[in-house]
Simulated scan of single mutants.
Amino acid sequence: MKLSKHLIAFQARIGHEFAEPDLLVRAMTHGSIASDTRPDNQRLEFLGDRVLGLVIAETLMRDDRMADEGQLAPRFNALVRKETCADVAREIDLGAVLKLGKSEQVTGGRRKMALLGDGLEALLAAVYLDAGLQTARELILRLWGERISTVAVDARDPKTTLQEWAQARGMSPPDYHVAERSGPDHAPVFRVAAKLEDGREAEGRATSKRAAEQAAARALLEGLNHE
C-alpha cells in the first residue's frame, strides 16, 4: 500500500517507517469512515492499550525498585490515562492524519481527547505488530519522555486526594458545579468550581467537564498546601 504524503511525513515525526504501511492506515482510521474494505482502529486500540500498559509498568518498576504497588499504581494511572495519550498525540500532530467521516470532521474530531487518545493507542499497536515489542517500547519511551521521570511520587487523581483530605477532617466530600460553559458545541470550554464544606473553593478550566473538575480540585489542593 502506498502512503499519502501526510502519512509519510507522520512516519518521520514518530521515527518509524512501517514495513507494512496498511497497519498505519488502519491505526489512523476512525469508525466514522470505516467500511467492510476499510476496517477501523478499534481492535488496534485494544491491543495498544495493553502494550502501553506493559511498557509503562515495567519501566516504573525498573526505575524505582523500592516502590510498592500502592506507590506505583497512581503513577501508572497518570501515565496511561486517556488525557495523557491525547497530550502525546497532540505533540506529534496525530490529529492531522486521522481518517474521519464528515460528521466527525465537522464537529472537531481531530481535536477530541477521546479520538486522539484512541488513535495514539492504535498507533502503538501498529508499531508493535509491524516491528515487535522492543521497537514499540523505544517509541513509547521516546514519546513519553520526561513524563515518566517526572511523574509525581503521589500521582493520585486530584479529586480523590481532595476528597480524602476533606474526609480526614470530618467534612463532606467536595462539591463541584459548572460555573460557565463557553465555546461552540464541538469545542466547549468548561469552568468548574470545587467547594469545600467550610466555604473554601477554587476554579478550573478545561475542554471537558471531567478535566475541569480535576483542574479545580488541583487548584484547591495547591491553595490548601500554601495555607
Results as ranks from 00 to 15, higher is better:
residue 153 V to M: 12
residue 71 Q to E: 15
residue 120 L to M: 09
residue 106 V to A: 15
residue 93 D to T: 08
residue 71 Q to P: 02
residue 104 E to Y: 09
residue 165 W to K: 04
residue 96 A to W: 05
residue 106 V to G: 09
residue 152 A to Y: 09
residue 162 L to M: 04
residue 118 D to A: 09
residue 108 G to E: 03
residue 139 L to W: 00
residue 111 R to K: 15
residue 89 A to W: 02
residue 62 R to D: 01
residue 184 P to V: 12
residue 154 D to M: 09
residue 74 P to L: 08
residue 74 P to D: 09
residue 124 L to Y: 01
residue 123 L to F: 01
residue 114 A to M: 09
residue 181 R to W: 04
residue 144 W to Y: 06
residue 64 D to I: 00
residue 160 T to V: 12
residue 57 A to L: 11
residue 117 G to W: 05
residue 82 K to S: 14
residue 144 W to F: 08
residue 69 E to G: 12
residue 114 A to I: 07
residue 131 A to Y: 05
residue 123 L to P: 00
residue 143 L to G: 04
residue 163 Q to C: 11
residue 66 M to C: 13
residue 142 R to A: 14
residue 87 D to G: 10
residue 179 A to V: 10
residue 93 D to P: 00
residue 77 N to D: 15
residue 110 R to W: 10
residue 79 L to N: 07
residue 131 A to S: 09
residue 90 R to N: 04
residue 73 A to H: 14
residue 128 Y to G: 03
residue 131 A to C: 05
residue 59 T to G: 08
residue 177 H to R: 12
residue 71 Q to L: 12
residue 167 Q to K: 14
residue 136 A to H: 00
residue 89 A to I: 00
residue 148 I to L: 07
residue 147 R to C: 10
residue 79 L to Y: 01
residue 110 R to V: 14
residue 151 V to T: 03
residue 148 I to D: 03
residue 72 L to E: 06
